[in-house]
Amino acid sequence: MVNLNGTVLKDAEAAVAIDNRGLNYGDAVFETMRFSARKIYFWEDHYFRLMASMRILRMEIPMNFTLEFLEEEILRTVNSFENNNAALRIKFLVWRKTGGKYTPETNDIEYVISFEKLATPFYVLSETNYEVELFKDHFITSGLLSTLKTNNRLINILGSIYAKENEYENCLLLNENKQIVEALNGNIFMVSGNTIKTPPLSEGCLNGIMRKQLIAIIKLLPDFSLEETSISPFELQKADEIFITNTIQGIVSVTKYRKKKFVNSTAKILLPKLNLKARMD
């Protein structure tokens, strides 16, 4: 089931025009959220990021797009699922209405809410091998647009194909200054001793919801110091630990980069605190 502009439909019944601006011009933004125990994890953060993204892209935000209204629309969509107590991955996609070429005829929007079932009701840390490599064929351009969740994800797609072809679990993306920005599907944190580093938004990394939660958690831990700073590829092999964060998986520990193997001790400290924060938020 999906919610298309307020109407809950079977997937096969939902349709958009072939001149949809999200399809033709990438004129769309989205939020991917985790739903568990009948609540949307970090809903307010997702909502305000979506509103900020729509404003930056000069979309007209409907008057009824309040925090409460959109939460109710998501819950109404989820309730159409027979197992609505399950853990779900929810996607809220917004695009500018059809009309115009590069110059839109209107800034009004349409939206769709969809979901799929997740395997676990809370965040878990996998102990399986997770090898990463740099993706150097294309670069993320640092700047405000790179921090948004738009559907312009060609670098992530090509990087994912590269990872699959070369049997890596993930790739790390670089900006035009050859600095580490993020992974294909999340933000990156690097641990060296008691210092935890993550790239600043000015480097072009996604303004991730899970990144925000982890930064808040780490700042409360007296045994660690956090630095939002540029990370050079040369630093990776000197690190003790690297982990990737996103809203659906939480924390994913990297086990190997080239010849360097990593521990996951910091991730094990952070994960229960993250699960607690998600339940209490």
Rank of each mutant, 00 (worst) to 15 (best):
D223C: 09
L172A: 02
N207S: 15
I140F: 05
L221T: 01
Q213I: 12
N156G: 02
V132H: 00
P200W: 13
I180N: 00
K164A: 11
I196W: 08
L134W: 10
T198C: 11
L226P: 03
T229E: 13
K178S: 13
S202D: 08
T150N: 08
C205I: 06
I140E: 02
E167D: 12
L226N: 05
L154M: 15
S192N: 13
G208F: 01
R211S: 06
S232K: 10
P200A: 12
E203K: 13
N170H: 08
N177G: 10
H138N: 14
I157M: 14
G143Y: 10
L220W: 05
K178G: 05
K212N: 07
N152Q: 14
S202T: 14
F189H: 00
P222D: 15
S202F: 07
G204Y: 01
F135N: 02
N177Q: 15
N151T: 10
I209W: 04
L144N: 11
L184C: 03
I215Y: 11
E169I: 05
I209H: 01
K149E: 03
L201P: 00
L174N: 00
I215H: 03
I180M: 02
S160T: 11
N185C: 10
L184Y: 02
F189Y: 08
N152D: 13
T229R: 14
S232W: 06
E127I: 06
S126T: 10
T128L: 11
A183D: 03
I215C: 04
N151G: 05
P222L: 15
V124K: 09
I188T: 07
P233G: 09
N129P: 01
S202V: 09
L145Y: 14
I155N: 01
T141S: 13
K136H: 08
Y168M: 06
P233E: 11
E133I: 04
N194K: 15
S192M: 11
Y162L: 02
V191M: 10
T150C: 06
I231H: 04
N152R: 15
I180G: 00
S232R: 09
F135D: 03
E176S: 13
L173E: 01
L172P: 00
Y162D: 00
K164V: 04
H138Y: 15
V132P: 01
L145R: 10
C205F: 05
L220C: 12
N177V: 10
I157G: 10
S146H: 05
N129M: 07
E228Q: 15
I217Q: 06
I196L: 04
E133T: 06
N207A: 15
T198I: 11
I196E: 03
I209S: 00
I180R: 00
L220H: 12
I231L: 14
I209Q: 01
K219C: 08
S225D: 08
L184Q: 01
I196G: 01
E131A: 11
I217E: 05
A216E: 15
L173R: 01
Y130I: 09
F135P: 00
G208Q: 11
S160Q: 13
N177M: 13
S126K: 12
S160G: 13
N207R: 15
K212C: 05
T141W: 07
N170R: 08
E127C: 05
L174T: 02
N185P: 03
S202H: 07
S146T: 03
K197V: 11
G204M: 13
V132C: 07
T141Y: 09
E176P: 04
I209P: 01
